[in-house]
Design a binder for these strands. Sequence first.
RNA 1: GGCGCCGUACCCAAGUGGCUAAGGGAGCAGUCUGCAAAACUGCGAUGCGGCGGUUCGAACCCGCCCGGCGCCUCCA
Length: 494
Amino acid sequence: MLRVYNTLTGSKDPFEPLVPGKARMYVCGVTVYDYCHIGHARSALVFDVLRHYLEYSGFVVEFAKNFTDVDDKIIKRAHEQGVSCENITAKYINAYYEDMEKLGVRRATLEPRATEHIADIVTLVDRLLAKGMAYRVDGDVYFQVDRYPVYGRLSKRKLDDLQAGARVDVDQRKRHPMDFALWKSSKPGEPSWVSPWGPGRPGWHIECSAMAMRHLGETFDIHGGGMDLIFPHHENEIAQSCGATGKEFARYWVHNGFVQINQEKMSKSLGNFFTIREIFKESEWSDVVTGEMLRYFLLSTHYRSPLDFSDQSLREAKGALNGFYDLFERLNEPAPSQGVADQQMREATTRMRQAFVEAMDDDLNTPTAVAALQKLRGETNKAIEAGLSGEMRRAVRREFRTLGAVLGLLQPDSWQFNPKLNPKRVGEAVSVEIEERIETKVVLSDTDIERDLAERNEARKMKDFTRADDIRKYLARHGITIEDRPDGTSRWKR
RNA sequence: GGCGCCGUACCCAAGUGGCUAAGGGAGCAGUCUGCAAAACUGCGAUGCGGCGGUUCGAACCCGCCCGGCGCCUCCA
């Protein structure tokens, strides 16, 4: 049974959904005013994996992930560029879909937008006003935090502590410094909707409460997002939701850790920011390969731990994945109908599947789950060595595909031996790091490589091994590895 | 000032009270190969930042110290 770390309780809690067999989750999506960075990628991937694993475990998953499409930053960006807010949000929603597709992150089953739920938001604010948990100041409406007695239960903070730490100028019209806006009156030129309190727009936190309740009900199972959302965003969501309904809001609060650069949080001020599209653009590998490298890298650390992004870590992910795809090539080779290692392979597969499930059950321990796949890779290679039937080979490949699918890995039939997946920037010079030196190589085209390979095989037939090895060395300098097969043919990979 | 996290081999990274401290990458040696690649076999932390303590027993619990980081303000 799956156990997830619940920020609310501070412990790994068994996942028991409200409705048996059904898992309802809401994840805070992005504010669409800029391109997504690798941190967004991590968050999106973590919850995509959680969803996959819930499905693998037999749950029907209802998964809502919102777009925040009305917000100060969007308005600012629109003003800067002299375009409408819709212009900005449409552009970055599109970019988001492109990036996520390359990462292999599926769309949520529901993708609500704040601007499409103004009526729900107004109703919710009204409820809070009626209950005396919110108050009006001019055209604004604020949530009054001291009317919600357990404010701070998610982030484990006390209102008094927060007051002491407040560093921001406090709006004097607020009754308590931590009161936050549910509804903001809009200035001229800002997006605006009619409301009982005058023209305005929703505050940041209220949209998630309204959309989650609308689509998943007043109480649902999982609410997720990045660590940084614990306070104040999720804290405020809880306060206003529970305040309005008197019921529990989300039952499990799941938060992912940050991506860092050189042990420091990524931030625009430090200039250590990598957008997803930047990484794909600069990768020397095709999008399919780069996407899988990124996923492997992001899942090789537990989702709650900080994770340091670097070129080296991506390269290591590539190296680790190569082993799997080398194995899949081997599994495709001709095999006997009876294998002496079949039985032992069957047992190893069962063992590894159990290890995989056990790891994922333990708060989505993807590093250990990946280790189980690696272990199975070793066992399979050994079994092939000993003799593995064709039928068993196909069964093992299916197993890798099934378990890999939970993590979004190991799906392509072929990888490094599939020329279609690899060539990129043909004819261009790229920098490669070889033994801590940066060298330049030219990316060869497939036809160039095939031609050289044919020439080399001619030389080999003539026993001109000097010539053959020269060609091998030449290709090696350009990052091409040749594999000679027992039948005399050769294949190559980048 | 308040709250919290991390420090495991050359690198990445599981493990959080009890069999020989997972797994990957890199490395070295061997088998195989015309040479390679891949694969296989073997090697690699007597120790888990340091020092104390609790315990029959600790990388895992407690205390102190050292080093690094996050949140308290928009942020995945």
